[in-house]
Design a binder for these strands. Sequence first.
DNA 1: CATGTTTCCTGACAGC
DNA 2: TGCTGTCAGGAAACAT
Length: 297
Amino acid sequence: MPELPEVETVANGVHERVGGQRIVSVWLSSKPQTFKTPAAEMAAALEGRGIERVRRVGKHIVFDLDRAQDSPADSSSSANIQPVSVQPVNVQWIVHLGMTGRLLVSSPDVPLPAHTHAVLGLSSGRELRFVDPRRFGRLAIHSSATSDDAASPAGFQGPGREPLAIALPEFQALFRGRRLAIKSALLNQSLLHGVGNIYADESLFRAGIRPKRMAGRLRRAELERLHGSVQSVLREAIALGGSSVSDYVDADGVRGFFQLEHKVYMRTGQPCLVCGTAIRKIALGGRSTHYCPHCQR
DNA sequence: CATGTTTCCTGACAGC
DNA sequence: TGCTGTCAGGAAACAT
């Protein structure tokens, strides 16, 4: 179940393997719900593009594509001269891994895994493949006008604030007046994006806060602890290559190791590593939620 | 608008 | 062995 640390690991790994290469061919499966952008439109937007950078925004993987071929009908005219009337456009390929999505870089000789939904042929001769058995993943094209303001990078921004960048006052303001459980608020991607079930539970444990506490009623000091614990949990998980739970692997097929650091997630009934109390599991918003009833108030 | 609930999908696993 | 049933979960759609 890829969350921010796993997505960051995958994005970095894919960047190392395909950054600087050109997309020479595109094949997409016939599973329309996988494509937020219609498949034909997506294929046309990708084919011939160079991949400048692959990076993470929230739980999304963003492929920044070059603009070398924005005017294909005009290819006979001199290169690099854009008509003044045409606004330059940023084109990005957005990949969300959902639950079981994987991005693999393979030789074409390697048989296609089951549930392959996209194959991009690359100028290196290798293929970038999107494989997703459960099909909660999504692919989309994001187009946006470029900004002349170099300070504000144009393009896909994601639905919420970046947990690793947000300052304490803004973090505290996110939850002000909210009448839902803090766990649910942490999972709401339009507030903070990137935190999922594992890191929400682990962050709340470190901060000593019960998952069901109403977000808007947390004290300033509690939100300060939570701000710190969200960032420390995510940073430590990134350093360990993410958590391998069920079938998550990074772009190399290597498993992460942060699951060895989990204090509450999937430890139902086992003793709390701090106080020995049995870890409790409850359902909250339809999601399994794990906490220590002694350490978390 | 804010919040809560349902739905999508398949593989893994338990139990018989 | 092989079947059936249950569970997992991100985020969009839908309901309240």
